[in-house]
Design a protein around this nucleic acid. Sequence first.
DNA 1: TTTGGCCGATTGTTCAACAATCTGACGATT
DNA 2: AATCGTCAGATTGTTGAACAATCGGCCAAA
Lengths: 234, 234
Amino acid sequence: MTTSDAVAGTASGAAPGAAAARLRVTVPSVADRVAAELRLQLAEGLLLPGTRLTESAIAEDLGVSRNTVREAFAELAGERLVVRLPNRGVFVASLGPGDIHDVYTVRRAIEVSAIRAGGSPERVAAVRAAVEEGKAAAAADDEEGLGTANQHFHGAIVALAGSRRLGTIMSQVLAEMRLFFHKATLDAHFYRGYLDDNETICAALEAGETERAAGLLLAYLDRSEAKQSAVHGD
Amino acid sequence: MTTSDAVAGTASGAAPGAAAARLRVTVPSVADRVAAELRLQLAEGLLLPGTRLTESAIAEDLGVSRNTVREAFAELAGERLVVRLPNRGVFVASLGPGDIHDVYTVRRAIEVSAIRAGGSPERVAAVRAAVEEGKAAAAADDEEGLGTANQHFHGAIVALAGSRRLGTIMSQVLAEMRLFFHKATLDAHFYRGYLDDNETICAALEAGETERAAGLLLAYLDRSEAKQSAVHGD
DNA sequence: TTTGGCCGATTGTTCAACAATCTGACGATT
DNA sequence: AATCGTCAGATTGTTGAACAATCGGCCAAA
C-alpha cells in the first residue's frame, strides 16, 4: 500500500477540515496542554530568551512523557517561540535587531491592512473598549494591565478585518514580542505614551476616516519600532 | 527541579536563535524529511483535500516510526496543510468558501504592503524574471509551468519587503492554495489571463510608480478571488 | 425506524532502549 | 603555554512495543 492510495470515503462527504473548526467540544490533547503551559511561562517571563529547555526535565516536571514534550516543542517551534538546534536542544527564541524590524514589517502589513477594512460597528466598539481598558489601567497605575490593554488594542485592530488567519498571525507576532518585552517593561512609563495614540486612532476610526486612521497607525508603528530598537542594543 | 530553573549558560552568550538561522550545515531530521515528502505529495495533488492520513500506513510506507510520522503531522498541522481531528485522525485540509476569502484577505495584506515597500532594483529584477518565466511557459503551452511561474511572481512581490517572516507566511498561504487549485488548473487557460496583469504590475514597479502598482495588484487579487469563488461551489 | 450496545480499528500516550551527536574536560604533543 | 586529539557523560533523535481511550460501524432489539 502506498501513501497516496489511503483515500478515505470522507473526501466526497462533509469536509472534516471546516467542520472541526466550528464545533469544538473536544478536550485539548496533553501535548497541547504542555504547549499551553510553556506558552504561559514564556509570556510571564519565567523563561528568558536563550534559556535551554531540556526534554527530560520538562517531562518529569509536568509529569508527562518525553515524546509528548517533544510534540509540544514542535508546536511552539512552529510559532517561533522556541528554536530547535539539532542534537543540541530547544531554546527560548531570542530576537536580534534584524528580527525587530522584521516583526514590525509584519505588523505594518497586517494592522494597516486590517484598519483599512473599516470593520463593523461592533468591531470598532471592541477597539474602543481596549482603549478604555488602557485608560483604566493607567489610572490605577497598573503597568502590567497597561501592557495587556495595548495588546488588546492591536488585536482588536486586526480583528476589524474579520479574518481568522490574520488573527492567528497577529497572535503569534504578539507572543513573539512579549518574549523580549520584559526588558522594556521595566521602564515604568513605557506604554504611557501610547495611550494618546490609541485614543486618536480610535477616534478617527469611529469617525469613519479609515484612511487617516491607517496613516496614524503606520506612524505609530514606525515610532514604536524606533523606540524598541533604541532600547535594545543596536 | 522546576521547569524554570533550567537556565543555561548560553543565555548571556551568543544568542542561539539567531545563530542557527544563519549557519545551516545540519542534516534535516527524519521527521522533517517525512513532512517534506508529504508536502510534496500534497502540492502535486496526489493527496486530495479530505483524504485521511493514517499514521501506521504512512509510517510503514516511508519506513519510519509512528512517532516520527506524528511529529511530521504536527509540523504540517502548524502550516494548516493538514487538520487534526482528536481521536479520529489527520486529514488533508479542505478549504470552504469562507476560507477562500480569508486566504485572499491575507494575500491582500501581505502583497500590497510588500509592493508598497518598492524594493531594491535586484528584487524588482526578480519580479521581472518571474514575469518572463510565465511568458516562456505560455509560449510553450506549459500549463504546469504557467502556474508555478505565477506563484514565483507573487513570491517575488512579497520578497520586495525583504522580510523573512512575511516570506514564510506567504509560502504557507501559497501552499494552502495549491491544495485546492488542482480543480481549477484543469481549465487549460486559467492562468493565461493573469499574464498581462503581471506584466502591467511589473512595468509600474520598474517605473517607480509603486502606488499605482499597489492599486493594480489589489484589483488583481479581488478579481482572482472572485474567479476562485466562482469556480468553487458557493 | 430508531435506539442501544458490542467489536474492531485508530489514535493518544507512555515507556524503555539504542544510536548519533554535542559538550566539556583531561591529557599529550609541540 | 597553547593547541590538538581523545574520551566519557549527557542529551537528543528515533524506534518499537504496549496499553487505555475513543470512534465508527454493525447488528440486534424495541
